[in-house]
Write a protein that binds this DNA or RNA. Structure first.
Length: 431
DNA sequence: TCTGGGGTCCTAGGACCC
DNA sequence: TCTGGGGTCCTAGGACCC
């Protein structure tokens, strides 16, 4: 049977800025921006800032004068806080509609299966009020027949004053106009590259795309483009996901404030990134089969240098020292001296649940011992803070070559040991 | 001077095999 | 002069998203 359910996209307005305003109501009266990790780019803007013409992801140095002239609050990001508020928003929605009806799409967005379309608009308005009352976050709601149309509708709801943040185009005569007024690059999944290709064949608006032959778009773009055409016609091609999909990759990547040049600096940076990624992998109880390492010089310069290498292991692992070894192997193959590196990253892939790791054909006993040690390290780091215990770079340790763990000054082992539970004896035996 | 990070999916082209 | 060809697997990189 054809699925006639109405789909809503709920999107928090200027999410990071709205979160900051929840913490500090004085910010309500000022323009606000939130910056990316090392304060490089603007990743969230209040309406006032958008009106100034400041674009998303623009580097701060290009607009700093303009922002300061307008008394803008320029804030570093605080992702943990935003995650917490995101959870509250999603829970507020779930309370009414149930777990099954909500698909969390990103930190500030969720698709909702509204069921039969009759009461959609009332539900949308109710949710908007409820989320505002319970969390202080303003949201917009777009209702339509498919995800792609819901995204598009939400976009209009957010921009247009008349809609008051909730718009239902499920079965509306205005849909045609809305499609006509939407440039093709604003459609979900059509970026500026794809848009250029579409312009060449005379497809400029969402309406043009909807009226295109599917095979023609399949040929010009790809299978996703073809599905997008059908979605614009009201045919569901991107299904509603009731269960949260397992993560497929875990990445830790960073730009360096100052470029790094030496082998040793870069190796330490990359191994450090690997440790951060493993930390999250172990927290999520996952194990990886592959690791990718990449290193890059400044991508805005002409002599941009970028290399990556993937290592596919024959077995899965969640052991820090093994992932470190894999990382190091990749790194050694791609590092070239005489470059000014600006960015690097480590990506873990081929993830499965850690309890699904099969036994090692050889060295099973050793593997088990490493598991125990890794668990203990996790516990110590959880109790006493990150990097209380970590893998040593044995190359940096002079004659301590056989020692695989380094106890940081933060935690003195003798005082720690009595507090440990039954694992302690295991730990002693291991060392 | 100063340009994010974490994801997903797709694809061109090389290596290898028969 | 002329240099198979198809399938498969893999890597590296691109496009897109928030």
């Amino acid at each position: 049977m054809l699925d006639r359910n109405a789909i809503a996209l709920i999107d928090c307005n200027n999410f990071f800025v709205s979160c900051e305003r929840v913490f500090d109501p004085l910010l309500e009266k000022r323009p606000v921006v939130v910056l990316s990790n090392n304060d490089g780019c603007i990743i969230s803007r209040s309406d006032e800032v958008k009106k100034m013409g400041v674009k998303m992801a623009v580097p701060l140095f290009k607009v700093r004068d303009l922002l300061e002239k307008n008394n803008t609050a320029i804030l570093s990001s605080n992702i943990e806080h935003y995650c917490e508020i995101s959870r509250r928003v999603m829970n507020s929605i779930r309370e009414n509609l149930g777990q099954e009806a909500v698909e969390v799409y990103s930190i500030d967005e969720a698709f909702i299966d509204l069921g039969t379309p009759d009461k959609s608009e009332e539900v949308g308005k109710y949710l908007k009020q409820k989320v505002w009352d319970e969390t202080g976050i303003p949201i917009s709601v777009g209702i339509a027949k498919t995800k792609t149309l819901a995204k598009l509708t939400n976009h209009i709801a957010k921009k247009s004053k008349k809609t008051e943040g909730v718009l239902n185009l499920y079965d509306s005569p205005y849909l045609e106009t809305a499609l006509k007024q939407t440039p093709v690059e604003k459609i979900w999944g059509i970026g500026h590259r794809n848009a250029k290709r579409l312009y060449k064949i005379g497809v400029n608006t969402a309406l043009d795309l909807r009226n295109s032959k599917v095979w023609k778009i399949r040929r010009t773009l790809n299978v996703f483009g073809a599905r997008t055409v059908l979605e614009l016609r009201g045919e569901k091609c991107f299904p509603f996901e009731r269960t949260i999909a397992d993560k497929k990759t875990i990445a830790h990547t960073r730009s360096f404030g100052e470029p790094l040049t030496t082998y040793r600096e870069m190796r330490n940076a990359v191994l450090n990134f690997a440790n951060r990624a493993v930390e999250r992998m172990r927290r999520d109880r996952l194990a990886a089969k592959s690791v990718t390492v990449f290193i890059q010089t400044n991508r805005f310069k002409d002599d941009h240098f970028s290399r990556s290498r993937i290592l596919n292991s024959i077995y899965h692992s969640n052991l820090p020292h093994e992932i470190n070894d894999w990382t190091l192997q990749c790194f050694k193959e791609i590092f070239e001296s005489g470059k000014e590196y600006k960015k690097a990253g480590v990506i873990l892939s081929g993830l499965i649940r850690a309890d699904k790791i099969t036994n090692r054909l050889f060295e099973n006993e050793q593997f088990r011992r490493w598991q125990v040690l890794a668990d203990i390290m996790d516990e110590l780091n959880f109790r006493y803070g990150r990097d209380t215990v970590k893998l040593a770079n044995i190359w940096d340790m002079g004659n301590a070559k056989s020692l695989h763990t380094l106890i940081n000054e933060k935690a003195e082992l003798p005082t720690l040991m009595p507090e440990m539970d039954s694992n302690t004896s295991e730990f002693r035996r291991f060392l």
